[in-house]
Amino acid sequence: MHIDHSHEGPAAVSADATRPDGRRRALRVGLGGPVGSGKTATVAALCRALRTELSIAVVTNDIYTREDAEFLLRNAVLPPERIQAVETGACPHTAIRDDISANLEAVEDLEEAVGPLDLILVESGGDNLTATFSKGLVDAQIFVIDVAGGDDIPRKGGPGVTTADLLVINKTDLAPYVGSDLDRMARDAAAQRGELPVVFTSLKGEDGVGPVVDWLREQLAGWVA
């Protein structure tokens, strides 16, 4: 057996950072978080903000429908051939962490159909606070929570909140109506995450997704450098 020579010829698992022609492949960024926190709205806003300067594609992981993919199509944030939906068999966290094969296939199909791509956003199905993406699937991950889900979520922690490369606390415009304390959320998040960044967003406002765009640009600059 020659089990340690798996990188001759085409990559078996497509985790390699370069394409066969030697160029850097697209940066893959995962977006996870609880149901209703604004993952799809964030993806839509990111596509609108970046689509003129970058070649972007999106993979959605709907739990039992095609709602998320259809939301993106309906809002025409990208042409349909740049959006792929993956079915997850009632287990969204399995599809992004334990068995990433269907998601890797979607990523490869998008590269093949509309590539070369600069950025692929992989949106998880709405899940619980323990859901994280495999490093075999994405290069960086964003965890999206919202102020209306309870201002104690940063304090509760969990792998999504504590280890994501970026924590987005969304729907800040709702804070006064649901009695959420943004300062407390910021303090708790900082205590859980140390040096890892946290941004607050309100997608209803002008350039509401701006802080996430800024973070993404830094990631892209580091990726192609």
Binding site: S6, V13, A102
Partner: peptide, 23 residues
């Protein structure tokens, strides 16, 4: 589809010229 996914896991687990040829 499942064959393609099995192929990915198989090539990573037990690489062989026969798997490469079928892939």
């Amino acid at each position: 589809r499942l064959g393609r996914q099995m192929m990915r896991a198989a090539r990573a687990s037990w690489p062989s010229p026969e798997l490469e040829a079928l892939a």
